[in-house]
Design a protein around this nucleic acid. Structure first.
Lengths: 90, 90
DNA sequence: TCCGATCGTCGCCGAACGACGACATCCACA
DNA sequence: TGTGGATGTCGTCGTTCGGCGACGATCGGA
């Protein structure tokens, strides 16, 4: 399944979900990813200052991966003027 | 387009590619994302200790988003014992 | 050829990271 | 009801982040 990450809270939830799917404890994930157990707890809670390298290591340990996707895939194939004309909400 | 991120170097390349597509300087991206300009330079170079919150802010500024995707969807349908028996490296 | 923008990198600094060990709480299960 | 695992959180400690200002190298256009 795919999960979009817009906040670190989303990231934490995705990690926790995946970890629970694998029926791993935080301690088990921490050991496999080479990080501290309390750190896993904080990241699952949405810690914003967690280092990206460790986060990627955790995803690797979980058998998941990170993807970067452009928002607005076909932006150059559609009529931008029309888009902006009809734009009406945040 | 989608880009898989397996290392921080992949992440840096994705950010740089996206930034250049938008024809932005590092300084412009830094200001939009609320981070320091040298920091952008380091992240594009693959800095592993960059804070995840700032990275997400940069993706947001670039109009891209981060996705988490399971690798091996059918992990519970294969023989885990065989997997571990043949485990031998790193 | 020269000037300006861009970029990689440095030193300084206050602030905060993350490992570790520990503690209290919560929950499933005997 | 009690016991052990799992989890959230704390304090300490050594390390390092990231902002800021600045410098030199590189590249493109006047």
């Amino acid at each position: 399944m795919d999960h979009e990450i817009l906040t670190t809270r989303d990231l934490g939830e995705a990690i926790r979900r995946r970890r629970r799917d694998l029926a791993w404890s935080q301690a088990e994930l921490a050991e496999r990813a080479g990080v501290g157990r309390p750190w896993i707890s904080e990241v699952e809670g949405g810690k914003r200052t967690a280092e990206i390298g460790r986060v990627i290591a955790v995803m690797e340990a979980l058998g998941a991966s990170v993807w970067i996707r452009d928002r607005s895939h076909a932006v150059d194939q559609i009529d931008l003027d029309e888009l902006f004309d009809h734009e009406d909400s945040s």
